[in-house]
Write a protein that binds this DNA or RNA. Structure first.
Length: 788
RNA sequence: GCGCCAGUGGCGGAAUGGUAGACGCGCUGGUCUUAGGAACCAGUGGGCAACCGUGGGGGUUCGAGUCCCUCCUGGCGCACCA
């Protein structure tokens, strides 16, 4: 049975044209896929389109077209661009998330999630663009304004669909440890996002009432230092003790504050009893308390928390030290010994935490508690161009999620996007339905799903894109996880976390045997290019820049131009290189090799004309080399080729693709320096197979010309015995500093070689009149002579 | 502020604790020319030299670019998360 190897690059959004970033991404994946195919693996290497989303709607309005037409024509164009790159992709697995074929199955998954209690509806605060009458994603809000309308974004309470990702917070966190082939950086980002903290929940009794206020704290040990309580403006207790007018006034003040770090608070009527001491402490509404974290309420211990300290100073609240420190160290947030805390005095932080929780538990007003920063995933979008959520609403306000046999809910084609808000809202023809179960009139859900839902399971659908169900359980168990997942670091949290959640949720629903979707993650770096600007701050395209006497000018106008640092390619800075042009001018192989040559694939790659040119020169050089007549081998030729195969393979497997390029240069430098021409020999065939993953076109044409064949045998097995070098250059150090080298054979006799070494001029000079104290011989590696 | 990563020639970058600078670009000189974004040859960390060199300072080690401590600089991420 061949090894299954699922190699996947993050599928693109069909924006219109592929860019160099795509090219780099897909070339890296393609090299892997081709290598593994040569190894005889059963490679899965699909490609598809992340085809729903906002840009299509905006483009439709701007260009008077339809999101679907725009998207499908972009897909067509981008597919032909990708095909121009001749990537080794399984096009028969292709899918586009905007096709009924895909999203109808997603609606089925939605129903499953709903039935499993993992999808639900609740009121939530969202970013509302008052001009477009629609919700904006967080990333579409720039400096508090809508990116398209420039209007001040409002916070609005809307009924929204959510996925219960918090159910999996603990597992999503713990399983990060299993992902040993993920970049540490991404795992840390996810860990921080999940934001687990251990602490305690403490009930504070509201004075003179029989009610309690819950707070979460990671520092229950500082309870004796609590001098106030602060709650968020949205805390239920605020509604009870303040009028709507007062609340609105406070909200306004909070919003208007310039520096969002400045503390602001209003004391409210109620106060709480201190749980450990016979005293009352005041309750404030404070702008720095988050209503989305913990209980939306805290106790303030000014002596040992920077925020509480700042707040207490501003409102002249008492500051009681409960951890031993100097007064000028306040607020003191480190570990120390407890003071002023009757039952905790003398304990350190951890012991005090244990003891106070034990006590609070006993008294029945507290417990240990684990809190997570991660919140449930809001998936509702008030947008037309997305997957319709399969639900209907009755006139009484109740709703029903559809049954699977009522699917699909198709997205209607005839819509008016010029109107305000979600086009589906105004489409009564589509919206109004009679519920087949109750015969009652109902309205369709007009929200569509966040497009991150689409990309959370596409790697499952690729396994069988024609199945009449979302996926086949056996196929998932056999073919997942994806072995190598390659894409940009910008998806470190959202997409990768959502996909992990989906995998686990669907595992539980469908009894799958897979816990994680992506076994290995590789994040490629972006492509940068120098930027050019005129004195008038106009960006100039690199190809319009000419050099005269060391100065740079814009070709057309002969204005002086300044060269700026290499930055991420962007249309606004005009430093974009179009893949189509490069492919036309330099060809596929030169483009491929440049994508991997100048820096490690996970780092930035600076686009340079010299770089792409020298890549092309290398191709020509290899062609020229193989056009030479065959010559006899040198003694070490076989060894050099074997080392090449070995190094190249190691470097492909490590994603050290820049070193693969160095390996190719090293090999041909040797062959040409030694004037060993291999022509149509066996060794040639070996070399030509090995360069195939990186330079497929060249490799195929050499195979045709030299061997009149269009097929390769498998990737050669390295003969370990040929990798051993018995002749070595042994370095000799004196007192740990390099002195000289000596030619010898592996397995030399230490005493014999030392005799020779002592006679070498470079050594003799240095050790005469000195005493050799010690000789360190690391056999076959180095000799270090220690002298007095 | 917190966290993470990184600092090596003119540049991009190589170096299981063992000859620092592989490989490429650029540059210098030369060769050949159907005068080209071509190819080939030689050279290219600094210094006349002894020697000195991997951001600075300490340490561990026979031996440190690599390990430890500390500081500096840059990049990325998070940012009142109680």
């Amino acid at each position: 049975m061949p090894n299954k190897n699922y190699i996947l690059e993050m599928f693109p959004y069909p924006s219109g044209n592929i860019h160099m970033g795509h090219v780099r991404n897909y070339v890296i994946g393609d090299i892997c896929a081709r290598y593994h195919k040569l190894k005889g693996d059963e490679v899965i290497h699909p490609m598809g389109w992340d085809a729903f989303g906002l840009p299509a709607e905006n483009a439709a309005i701007q260009f008077k077209t339809h999101p679907q037409d725009w998207t499908l024509s972009n897909i067509k164009n981008m597919k032909s661009q990708l095909q121009k790159l001749e990537l080794d992709l399984d096009w028969d697995r292709e899918l586009a998330t905007c096709n009924e074929d895909y999203y109808r199955h997603q609606q089925e998954l939605f129903i499953d999630l709903y039935k499993a209690g993992l999808a639900y509806k609740k009121d939530a605060v969202v970013n509302w663009d008052p001009v477009d009458q629609t919700v904006l994603a967080n990333e579409q809000v720039i400096d508090g304004k809508g990116w398209r309308t420039g209007a001040q974004v409002e916070k609005k309470n809307l009924s929204q669909w959510f996925f219960k990702i918090t159910n999996y917070a603990e597992e999503l966190l713990n399983d990060l440890d299993k992902l040993d082939l993920w970049p540490e950086k991404v795992k840390i980002m996810q860990k921080n996002w999940i934001g687990k903290s251990l602490g305690a929940e403490i009930k504070f009794k509201i004075s003179n009432q029989n009610e309690f206020l819950n707070i979460f704290t990671t520092r229950p040990d500082t309870i004796y230092g609590a001098t106030f309580i602060a709650v968020s403006i949205n805390h239920p207790i605020v509604k009870k003790s303040l009028s709507k007018l007062e609340i609105d006034k406070i909200k306004k003040d909070f919003n208007e504050i310039d520096d969002d770090k400045e503390k602001l608070g209003y004391k409210i009527k109620i106060s709480c009893d201190h749980p450990m001491l016979d005293k009352k402490i005041p309750v404030y509404v404070a702008n720095f308390v988050l209503d989305t974290y913990g209980e939306g309420a805290i106790f303030g211990c000014p002596a040992h928390d920077e925020r509480d300290y700042e707040f207490a100073k501003k409102y002249s609240l008492p500051i009681i030290k409960v951890i031993d420190c100097d007064d000028d160290q306040l607020p003191f947030t480190e570990d120390g010994f407890l003071v002023n805390s009757p039952i905790l005095d003398g304990l350190n932080k951890n012991d005090a935490i244990k003891k106070i929780i034990f006590h609070l538990k006993k008294v029945g007003i507290g417990n240990e508690k684990t809190n997570y920063k991660i919140r449930d995933w809001g998936v509702s979008r008030q947008r037309y161009w997305g997957c319709p959520i399969p639900a209907i609403y009755y006139e009484d306000g109740s709703f029903r999620v559809l049954e699977k046999n009522e699917l699909p809910v198709l997205l209607p084609y005839d819509v008016n996007l010029e109107g305000k808000g979600n086009a589906l809202l105004n489409l009564d023809k589509w919206r109004k339905v009679i519920c087949p179960l109750t015969n009652k009139p109902a309205l369709r859900e007009t929200d569509t799903l966040d497009t991150f839902v689409d990309s959370s399971w596409y790697y499952m659908r690729f396994l069988n894109n024609k199945l009449d169900r979302p996926f086949d359980v056996n196929q998932i168990n056999e073919s997942l996880p994806v072995d190598k997942y390659i894409g940009g670091i910008e998806h470190a949290i959202l997409h990768l976390l959502y996909s992990r959640f989906f995998m686990k949720a669907l595992r539980d629903i469908y009894k799958l045997k897979v816990d994680e979707p992506f076994k290995q993650l590789f994040t490629q770096g972006m492509i940068t290019h120098k930027t050019y600007k005129t004195k008038k701050n106009e960006w100039v395209m690199p190809k319009d820049v000419i050099s005269r006497d060391g100065d740079l000018y814009r070709e057309k106008s002969f204005e002086r131009v300044e060269e700026g640092p290499a930055e991420k390619m962007s249309k606004s800075k005009k430093n974009v290189i179009e893949p189509d042009e490069i492919l036309d001018n330099y060809g596929i192989d030169a483009t491929r090799i440049f994508m991997i040559s100048d820096s490690p694939p996970d780092r930035e790659l600076e686009w340079t004309d010299e770089g792409i040119q020298s890549s092309k020169n290398l191709i020509h050089r290899i062609e020229r080399y193989f056009s030479q007549k065959i010559t006899p081998l040198k003694n070490d030729t076989e060894k050099k080729v074997e080392k090449f195969v070995n190094d190249l393979e190691k470097n492909i497997l490590n994603f050290s693709l820049n070193k693969c390029v160095a390996d190719i240069y090293t090999l041909f430098n040797y062959l040409e320096r030694e004037k060993v021409y291999l022509s149509d020999s066996k060794l040639s065939h070996k070399i030509i197979i090995c360069i195939f993953p990186i330079l497929p076109k060249l490799s195929l044409s050499l195979n045709k010309n030299l061997f009149n064949s269009s097929k390769f045998s498998k990737w050669p097995t390295v003969r370990a015995e040929l990798l051993i070098e018995d002749q070595i250059n042994l370095p000799v150090q004196i007192n740990g500093r390099f002195a000289t080298t000596i030619q010898t054979k592996k397995g030399y006799d230490k005493d014999v070689i030392l005799d020779t070494i002592y006679k070498l001029d470079k050594i003799k000079n240095k050790i005469t009149e000195k005493k050799v104290i010690k000789v360190i011989n690391v056999q076959d590696k180095i000799i270090n002579i220690i002298i007095s």
